[in-house]
Amino acid sequence: MSEQLLSLIKQAAVEAVNAAAPMEITFGIVQSVSPLKIKMDSKHIIDEDFLIKTEASVDKLAKGDKAVLLRMQGGQQFLFIDKVVE
Rank of each mutant, 00 (worst) to 15 (best):
L51F: 03
P35C: 11
D49V: 05
D59I: 06
L51A: 03
A19Q: 10
D47S: 13
Q73K: 12
L61H: 11
K37M: 15
S57P: 02
F78P: 01
I52V: 08
Q77L: 03
G75R: 05
I25V: 10
L61D: 06
T54W: 12
M72A: 10
G75F: 06
L61K: 11
K39A: 13
D82K: 06
D41S: 15
M40C: 12
L51T: 00
S7V: 00
F50E: 05
I25P: 04
V68D: 08
T54N: 10
V17D: 10
I9A: 06
H44N: 14
D65N: 15
V85S: 08
H44M: 13
E15Y: 02
L70G: 09
V85P: 03
P22V: 11
E15C: 04
A67Y: 02
S2T: 02
S57Q: 09
T26S: 12
V84P: 05
F80R: 00
K43D: 15
S7R: 04
S34I: 14
N18V: 02
T26D: 07
I29Y: 05
V17P: 01
Q31C: 09
E86T: 05
D65H: 14
Q4M: 09
L51M: 07
L69H: 07
E15R: 01
K60C: 08
I29P: 01
K60P: 01
K53H: 05
V58W: 12
V84K: 06
A13R: 05
L8A: 07
D59V: 07
F50G: 03
E55V: 10
